[in-house]
């Protein structure tokens, strides 16, 4: 590979404008695609509020549509006057250190969890969009774990906490400044069935 050289001079530049005509026919079928669960954890079939569609095109690809159902309802955790409605913990660049200013929020949620042993918290890690998606998923997880450890120190057991990561998937795209990136580097506190 010694002679790997960029040919920076563009020998030719060619644009092939492909015909963009939508004539794909997608008949409706009345059953969503079946889901088999082969993992050890319990899992329910995804609720397809949109019917699965299939294309008459031939390369043998069957289309599946998913829609997750968000349930909403009365939730004391969301009382805007309660500190429990505060759900965001922000991080410095390349850091998973939980800053002291978030201690009141973490203490309030820890108190709630200790008082409600059936409540299950989900800590959702997030990153800015720089870097690769899977690695950012791992970085977001590390932040979620860091927050979980703060809860552990306050006596909350692991069976009430799940740490997950969205990586960069929920990041505000095309950040122009550091404040925007900063807003993406956070752990969100959520509760099961919220």
């Amino acid at each position: 590979m010694k002679n790997l050289m960029f040919n920076k001079k563009l020998l030719s530049c060619l644009v092939i404008a492909l015909v963009l005509t939508a004539c794909k026919s997608t008949p409706m079928v009345d059953k969503p695609a079946p889901v088999e669960d082969r993992s050890t954890a319990t899992q329910t079939a995804p609720k397809a509020v949109e019917p699965a569609t299939t294309s008459v095109d031939t390369s043998g690809v069957k289309e599946v549509a998913i829609d997750s159902s968000a349930t909403t309802g009365d939730n004391p955790l969301k009382d805007p006057n309660n500190i429990l409605s505060k759900r965001n913990i922000y991080f410095d660049f390349d850091s998973d250190t939980v800053k002291a200013e978030y201690r009141p929020i973490i203490e309030a949620h820890a108190k709630y969890l200790l008082a409600h042993s059936n409540a299950k918290m989900i800590l959702q890690g997030n990153t800015d969009e720089r870097g690769t998606r899977e690695y950012n998923l791992a970085l977001g997880q590390r932040r979620a774990v860091s927050v979980k450890k703060s809860f552990n120190l306050l006596g909350v057991k692991d069976n009430q906490i799940e740490t997950v990561s969205f990586g960069e998937e929920k990041a505000t795209p095309n950040c122009a400044d550091e404040a925007c990136h900063q807003a993406n580097r956070r752990v969100d506190i959520a509760y099961e069935n919220e």
Partner: peptide, 19 residues
């Protein structure tokens, strides 16, 4: 997921992330 039939199976859904 099978491309021909569209059948989806969960390969891994453990506590935390699966990726």
């Amino acid at each position: 997921q099978s491309l021909m039939t569209g059948q989806r199976t969960v390969l891994a859904n453990f506590k935390g992330n699966n990726s």
